[in-house]
C-alpha cells in the first residue's frame, strides 16, 4: 500500500490500480480539489490503465464528488482505460441511483468482484 497525499491510498494489484478514498466525509471544495489531483496523478501514470475506486471508508459525499468522478472517468476513457467503483454504502448508492449515475459507472460489491470483472474483460 503506497500512501499518495492525504486523501487516498493506492495499491498496485495484478490487473488494476486500487485507489481507496481514506476520508469518511468528502465535502469541501479544497478537499475535492486535492482528491482530484491525487487521483489524476495515478490515472496519468499509464495509458490503458485499469482503476478500481474503493469507497469502503466513505459515509457521506456531496454532488461535487460526483462531478469529480465524472471528470476522472473521462480522463481514464480518453486513455483507453477502465474504471470500476466498489464498496459503496447503501446511502451513497442511493445518491448514484437518484442521479442515474448507476447507468454510466460500473459498480461492484467489493474489490474482488471489480477485479474479476476486469480479468473477464481482458
Amino acid at each position: 500500500m503506497v500512501p499518495v497525499k492525504p486523501r487516498i491510498s493506492v495499491e498496485y494489484a495484478e490487473n488494476a490500480v486500487i485507489i481507496t478514498f481514506t476520508d469518511e466525509k468528502i465535502l469541501e471544495e479544497k478537499d475535492i480539489q486535492a482528491l482530484q489531483e491525487s487521483v489524476m496523478s495515478v490515472v496519468e501514470q499509464a495509458e490503458r490503465i485499469n482503476i478500481i475506486l474503493d469507497f469502503c471508508n466513505v459515509r457521506f459525499l456531496s454532488s461535487a464528488v460526483l462531478g469529480l468522478l465524472i471528470r476522472v472517468s473521462k480522463k481514464i476513457y480518453e486513455q483507453d482505460g477502465k474504471l470500476k467503483l466498489c464498496n459503496i454504502n447503501p446511502k451513497i448508492y442511493e445518491i448514484f441511483k437518484i442521479t442515474r449515475l448507476t447507468k454510466i459507472f460500473d459498480i461492484y460489491e467489493d474489490v474482488e468482484s471489480a477485479a474479476e470483472s476486469l480479468s473477464a474483460e481482458d
Binding site: S63, L66, G67, L68, R100
Partner: peptide, 16 residues
C-alpha cells in the same frame, strides 16, 4: 439525468 447532462460534472444539487 437526461441525455448529455448525465455526463456533465455539475447540475445535480437541486435534484438531490
Amino acid at each position: 439525468r437526461c441525455g448529455e447532462n448525465l455526463y456533465k460534472p455539475e447540475g445535480r444539487g437541486l435534484l438531490l
